[in-house]
């Protein structure tokens, strides 16, 4: 796609790149990202999803359960949640909103060492 042999080609390539950034920014403005690790990654078969926001924390697990039936019982029930690298409390922070552009991590029980 990056044809740079002519001025026209170069301009096209830049235009294409700008469009890509614009589309990405547009997506970020209306969605947040959910990252899946370990068992959550295996269950969904994905490393991430983009979810339309904003959304109350209490609505996320039901939303994901609808997308991946059985996910809640088998995986999410033992997971913690991070928003922009900070843990949130699923009960105390239930009504807090996940904002568009946020990065949400589904954190299964850890097993390092």
């Amino acid at each position: 796609m990056t044809c740079t042999t002519s001025r026209h080609g170069k301009r096209f390539a830049i235009h294409y790149q700008l469009d890509f950034i614009y589309q990405k920014a547009l997506k970020m403005a209306s969605t947040f990202t959910v990252l899946y690790f370990a068992s959550a990654h295996t269950y969904t078969g994905k490393s991430e999803d983009t979810v339309p926001g904003p959304m109350a924390i209490s609505k996320l697990f039901p939303y994901l359960e609808e997308k991946y039936p059985g996910f809640r019982k088998k995986v999410l029930s033992s997971c913690a949640l991070s928003v922009n690298l900070n843990y949130v409390d699923l009960i105390e922070d239930a009504e807090k909103e996940i904002q568009n552009g946020d990065e949400v991590g589904i954190i299964p029980p850890v097993s390092s060492g």
Binding site: F37, A38, S39, T42, F61, R72, K73, L76, S77, S78, C79, A80, L81, L90, I91, G105, I107, P108, P109, V110, S111, S112, G113
Partner: peptide, 27 residues
């Protein structure tokens, strides 16, 4: 936040150092 997967002949299993410590079992 590091996860270990042990691979047996039947396939892989994600291990947990301590079960159910993190998160709340809403259900």
């Amino acid at each position: 936040e590091i996860w270990k997967r042990e691979w047996f002949v039947e396939g892989g299993v994600w291990r947990a150092n301590r079960d159910g410590r993190q998160g709340v079992l809403e259900e």
